[in-house]
Design a protein around this nucleic acid. Structure first.
Length: 482
RNA sequence: GGCCCCGUCGUCUAGCGGCCUAGGACGCUGCCCUCUCAAGGCAGUAGCGCCGGUUCAAAUCCGGUCGGGGCUACCA
């Protein structure tokens, strides 16, 4: 039987890093076994589901490159892959379960349930609802059923035990005394997650359910339902949760969790996938940088870590830098140029495009986040109007500043061959003549042309800027010296 | 409270009874390289939560304990 896995986010929020990791693992697992990766929308929560979140999820799945073989928008043999389009099916299943007495109309009120649970808590026993608060079936009147207050609950067999082998955790045993008679249909006759998700997994022929650990305790419910439907259970695998630096479940208050935020901050999808893959999975050797295709080759569902992982932005950033440095210059320019143009508020001219190409290798290796590019490149297209304050006071308010600037002007003015090598030689000549260290003598020039003590390499930068512009910038800075 | 999961450097992890004086990566520190910043090279830093048990031998197996997390909705 071929592998069929699904990623089934509910559109009640944007795609976040934890969900993205779950999606990735499903994707890798499917591809490793030449199976099918399905994207489904578990949108049974009408209150909180929005089209905007749905769009965000699809957009960022695509951004990551996690293409799905079946599912939302791409279609397949099972309709739209949106649960909100399948309410008839869930109702049909619910009615069938009712008929078979595997489910029952429940009249317990939230208040009653609270009392029930609190009492169990006080008594130190299981708080799972076992149906004991329901009226005798003979006393259920038509008006009660039509009052719109009844939910439908699954009748969990008691006593009983559900036992399964979790892909990542091994043998799991749940006593039914710990499992609620859970609601499968709300009082408004809409299905709950447990029902819809399980029915879909059955109907879609899902073989492996790989999801977050938060659903681990719900698994007995899903297995019980599946078997009540007369179907074979899937294999389940529960991934540990992602944590914030404080060890708590990762959430907004830890900073960015939305994929969109990472995308906007200048992370590349390759780095995101690589980092996410290593959060809870190990390729087996000491490999750290690993491509998606290598992951597919090695990801067989084993070697998944059971312990929760802290999401470390620092390491992600490092990895992002690795991927950016590995980009070809052309690829880099493709993503970088639009950023630079947006920063400038105009398109680059032919000549400037040439300058930027020359600058590319210099800034590429200095970029961790794509969003840093424009700041690094700006000096090449617009002269500094202000100078970084700390930089200025550090190198311009020194006795060497004027000497260095004047020396540079003289040396560069007479320079015929405007090349990095020639500029290097000319400027070093100035240093020598004035017995200045490169550190002292070159920094004022750097600040004059870039506005800061931190910039791409000086000689290359000067070559790219051109003679006139360079001399002009040095002169302007020189005029500001007291 | 009940049930469940988890526990190796600060972080992600390798480790599946002897190969471990515990390996790699990020971070951090120092040095080298060097026109700044990066990148790179080298070196260093730091860990098996604790207590018992099994065994000739335990990070690895067992029990307990402590700590962290999840679930406990007509959310998913």
């Amino acid at each position: 039987m071929s592998v069929r896995v699904r990623f089934a986010p509910s559109p009640t929020g944007y795609l976040h890093v934890g969900a993205a990791r779950t999606a990735l693992f499903n994707y890798l697992f499917a591809h490793h076994f030449d199976g099918t990766f399905i994207l489904r929308s578990d949108d049974t929560d009408a209150e909180r589901s929005t089209a905007a979140f749905q769009t965000d999820i699809l957009e960022h799945m695509r951004w990551l490159g996690l293409a799905w073989d079946e599912g939302i928008e791409v279609g397949g043999p099972h309709g739209t892959y949106k649960q909100s389009d399948r309410y008839d099916r869930y109702r049909e299943v619910a009615m069938q379960l009712l008929q078979e007495d595997r489910a029952y109309y429940s009249f317990v009120t939230p208040d009653q349930l609270n009392v029930f649970k609190q009492r169990a808590r006080n008594a130190g026993t299981s708080p799972a609802y076992d149906g004991t608060l329901e009226p005798d079936p003979s006393q259920i009147s038509r008006s009660m059923l039509e009052g719109g207050q009844a939910t439908i609950r699954f009748r969990v067999p008691r006593p009983g035990i559900t036992h399964f082998i979790d892909m990542v955790r091994g043998e799991m045993v749940f006593e039914h005394a710990q499992v609620d008679d859970f609601v499968i249909m709300r009082s408004d006759f809409t299905p709950t997650y447990h029902l819809a998700s399980t029915v879909d997994d059955v109907d879609y022929g899902i073989t492996h359910v790989i999801r977050g650990e938060d659903l681990l305790s719900s698994t007995p419910k899903h297995i019980l339902l599946t078997e009540a439907l007369g179907s074979d259970r899937a294999t389940y695998g529960h991934l540990s949760l992602l944590m914030g630096p404080d060890g708590k479940k990762l959430s907004k208050r830890h900073g960015d969790t939305a994929l969109s935020a990472y995308r906007e901050a200048g992370y590349v999808p390759e780095a995101m996938n690589n980092y996410l893959a290593l959060l809870g999975w190990s390729p087996g050797d000491d490999e750290t940088i690993i491509s998606v295709s290598e992951m597919i080759e090695r990801f067989d569902g084993t070697s998944i870590s059971r312990n929760p992982a802290v999401f470390d932005q620092g390491k992600l950033a490092w990895m992002n830098g690795v991927y950016i440095r590995e980009m070809s210059d052309d690829d880099f320019i493709e993503v970088a140029q639009p950023r630079v143009e947006a920063d400038l508020g105009r398109a680059l001219t032919e000549e400037e495009i040439g300058s930027f190409a020359a600058l590319t290798p210099l800034i590429k290796e200095r970029t961790k986040l794509l969003s840093e590019i424009e700041g690094q490149a700006r000096f090449a297209f617009v002269a500094p109007t202000t100078y970084d304050e700390a930089s200025w006071s550090k190198v311009m308010e020194t006795p060497e500043a004027a000497i260095a600037l004047d020396g540079a002007t003289a040396a560069l003015e007479s320079l015929e061959n405007w090349s990095t090598e020639a500029i290097d030689e000319a400027l070093r000549g100035v240093l020598e003549a004035n017995e200045m260290s490169a550190r002292k003598g070159l920094q004022p020039i750097r600040v004059a042309i870039s506005g800061s003590t931190v910039s791409p390499p000086l000689f290359e930068s000067i070559e790219i800027l051109g003679k006139d512009e360079t001399l002009e910038r040095i002169r302007r800075a020189r005029d500001l010296l007291t």
